[in-house]
Each structure stands twice: as C-alpha cells, then as structure tokens.
Design a protein around this nucleic acid. Structure first.
Lengths: 254, 254
DNA sequence: AAAATGCATTCTGTATAGCGGAACAATTTA
DNA sequence: TAAATTGTTCCGCTATACAGAATGCATTTT
C-alpha cells in the first residue's frame, strides 16, 4: 500500500534539522515546550534533540534555559558559498555566449580592487586575448569589474577613487565621471568598457548574484572594436545580462 | 561506569550533520563509498542518511550518483546572521574606517570564547589579511575579541583563564596580566592587541552595543606594525571607538 | 572476452537507539 | 496557597535505524 519507492527518511535527522531551521528562522531564543508544540514533537524528544544539537555546537543553551541557534550554522552554510563551483554553474551559459558572439568570454570574481579571471572561453575569431585564467585587471576599467564595482559602489567608491590610473586614453580617471558611469551601469543592468583598459578592446559585464543579491562573480565578453558594428553593443549587453541572470538562477538550484 | 551526566546524543542526527559538514567543506561532490570511508560509517548507513538529506533539500544528488551540498544550508545559516542585521547597520562606518585608515576593517561577533568575522573590508594597501569572513579567532588576543571580552569580563574571566594559549611571544597568557589589560581596555574605551595573535599584526577593537548596553558585536582594524608610526595608535583607537558608537546609535533605529 | 574490481543501491533480520508518557523539580500564574 | 507551566529525568517498549550480505551496473585488468 505504500507508494512505489517512498524515499526512506531517518526521522531523527529530519526532526533535528527542523528544530535547527526553526531556531534559525526566529529572532528570539525558544524554550523546549514552545518548540515542541510548534513542531508537533514530544517534549522529551525535542529535549533530547536539543541536547544533541548543543553538544554538536549548532545550538546554544541560554542561562534562562531557552535555546538559540549559534553561528556555527552560518559558518557551515558560508563554506557552501565559498566552495560553490562557479565554473560549473557558469559553464553552460559561457558556451552560449561564446556561440552567440564568437568573442572571448570571461568568468571573473572580485579580489579587493581587482578582478581575477577564473575561467574563459577564447574568441572563435583569429584574434588573441590577453587575459589568462588566473590573470587580474583593475576593477574600474573592465566590463566584469565595473559590473561588480557598481554593486558595491557605496563601499568601494572612495577606495577606487584613489587609484584611477589611466591605461588608455579612454580610461576613466575622474571620480565624478566614474560616479556617473556607475549610476548608468546600475540602471542598465550591465557594464560597458569602451576600451578603458586595453586600447581598442571593448568589454561587457554583468553580475552573478546569490538569492540575497550578494554578488559572487561576473560574466564578461571582450570584443575588439573592429568586430563591432552599430547595434552590436546593445545586443551583446543584453546577452551578457541574460547569461548572468541564468547563471544566478542556476546557482539557486545547486 | 558511565560518567555523571553524559549528555545524551542522538547518533542519527549527529551522523547526519557530520555528513552535511563534510559535504559543505569540500569543493567537489562525493560518492557514498568515499563519504562513508572518510566518516567511518557504514555504506548503507551513509546512503540512508544521504537519502534523508536529499529529501529535506540539504543535499543534491548529481547525475553521476555523487552527492553535494545545496544552497539550502547557506540559506538556513544566513538567517541567523540576518536576524541581527548588524551588517547593514555597520556597513557605512566600516567604509568610513577603511577610508580613514586604509587598513583591513573587521566586523565581528562573539561566539562563546571566539570571535567570528561576519564582514570585512580588505586593506587598501598591498598586504593581504588572512581572516576570511566566517573565520574565527580566540577572544583574548585580537582587538575585536578583547573589546567584547572586556564587556563581559566578570562572567567570562574564569572560562578564558583556562585557555590562555600563546600564539606569539606577545600573547597574554597570565590571567593577572589579562585582568590589568581588561581594566585598561574598559577605561580607554577600545581594545588594543599588540601582535598577540599574529606576529607583527596589531589590531584595535570597540564594541557595538544595544541601548541597554548589551554588546552585540565589535568593529576592528588590523594593522601590520610596519605601517604604524608613533601617534597612530591613539588616532586609530579613537577612530574605531567613534565608529562603533555610531553603529550602536544606528542600530537603535533599525 | 572473461574475470575482477569498483561503485551505488536494495534487502532483511536483529539489536538497540530513540521514543512516548509519566514523574519530578522548579518557576510562574491565579 | 494552589494550580498550572516550565525544563528535565527516568524507564520500559517497539519501531527505527543499523550492519552485512547480496544485487546489478560500469570500468578496468587479465
């Protein structure tokens, strides 16, 4: 009478995690009775599970005999994000971008005031790209960097403002000009670099974000200006934005 | 035979969480056998626990029959920190400190006898700091920790006294010395660590408090000693203190 | 191509881990 | 002071989660 292959579930583990979830979802600490009522468990059962969670460090027993989630839960969760294999999650959309644009595709994360390229797909056209995997570039003058910068601009503005070193004659070296550019970037949803790092190399970038909007990286496309006809800018920008969104969604399901 | 009151621990829950921890701590996904070997569990046991975790959404089964942690763990953990929206409240003053000092800025909370860094802004100078977000440090030898310790010193003194392990030759390992240092800290209004945790890394800390004086966290600045000229100590100390006060005021309005 | 290893998954009988309910102590409420 | 709620302990029963062996599928070795 049981369904075909009802996945077997260990009730102890299940109940324990439900307690943990309850405790993390609530601002105040809770007592045994309250907890057991809300979760539909026996008092003694709840008590024992709490003891276990305390012993393992996930829950703290307050002096007033109530229980609260510790930061261990958060730490464990954090490491998921840190180990998140962005590369895997992004691979598919990078291939898509490559096919659509035939240009060089980058996957970058931020490291201080630089971007670090953690993956790329080389241009399909006979033009070499200069940035190897592992390579870095200043955050304020490449597509991926400008995208990530725009997200944390309030915090990073003043730091960046001090190192607006020019790389080409297009590089933005005036903080006010950067302010404007960042505002535009946020509005537009993707970043555009008009040859500000490498002469005649334009690039686009859009952020990859976690469900809480935290930026974990960016996708970018690099294009030699000679390859670009009028109208391509909007098209590629939209493509990058779409791809980054798709990767963000992808991350959610990991 | 059994010790006085050995706290009862549900093994199922314990094992389940150990699997989760393992999976979150690792970049790649793992198979049942590998997992069971590393954790010292039976294969069938591991398999069943994994089934449970999958059913609850904490773990994902890959097409290649390996298992990986999902973002659910992260989401659950995140709500712990969210429920104290310290990060938001502190962001502005952290940026201020970063601008004023150019050094690494930390936002920390206390978790037992450790501090946990829940946010940071990296140094603008070309020197890396190696405490990641989520990282921990002993409460008695870093700026943020010493600040928080000084606030609850009557309660924590005896516990801390038992683990005064040295990390550098500057680490305070004598409880009487610590008594004095804590008294000074309270008087001064901010804490100072003279390279007691990391050799040649000095740090400052000041408490963030609720209206009822309860300490909820601390702001800190970390400085390599070579960056410090005479007089900087007082200046940075004052800055940190001021920043922490501002955040405390800010919290009131959230 | 056959044998041997590795894997994930299923099965099953059994021991025991984890359970519910009752009892107790300590507070809080009436 | 009595009644009602707390958190915690105890205990005997049984459903639960267990170990180990068996299965079936892939790879690798011979």
């Amino acid at each position: 009478m049981t369904k075909p292959s009802e996945p077997r579930v260990d009730s102890t583990l299940s109940k324990g995690l439900s307690i943990l979830e309850k405790l993390t979802s609530v601002k105040v600490s809770m007592g045994v009775s309250e907890l057991s009522r809300e979760l539909g468990l026996t008092k003694s059962n709840t008590f024992r599970l709490l003891q276990t969670l305390v012993a393992l460090g996930y829950v703290r027993r307050e002096p007033d005999k109530t229980y609260a989630a510790t930061l261990k839960t958060w730490q464990v969760g954090r490491s998921v994000v840190e180990n998140l294999n962005l590369r895997t999650a992004a691979a598919e959309m990078m291939a898509f971008l490559s096919e659509e644009t035939k240009e060089t595709i980058y996957l970058a994360v931020r490291d201080g005031l630089n971007v670090v390229y953690i993956d790329k797909i080389d241009s399909l056209k006979p033009i070499r790209s200069w940035n190897p995997i592992g390579g870095t570039a200043p955050i304020y003058c490449v597509g991926t960097g400008k995208a990530m910068l725009s997200a944390d601009y309030p915090i990073l503005r003043d730091q960046v403002g001090q190192l607006l070193k020019p790389f080409t004659d297009k590089t933005i070296t005036d903080i006010n000009a950067l302010d404007k550019d960042m505002a535009k970037t946020r509005l537009r949803g993707y970043a555009f670099d008009a040859g500000e790092f490498r002469q005649n190399i334009l690039s686009f970038g859009a952020n990859i974000v976690l469900p809480d909007e935290e930026v974990v990286g960016a996708l970018g496309v690099s294009v030699p200006d000679v390859n670009l006809s009028e109208g391509d800018v909007d098209r590629i920008g939209a493509l990058v934005q779409h791809a980054a969104r798709a990767v963000s969604k992808n991350l959610r399901m990991l």
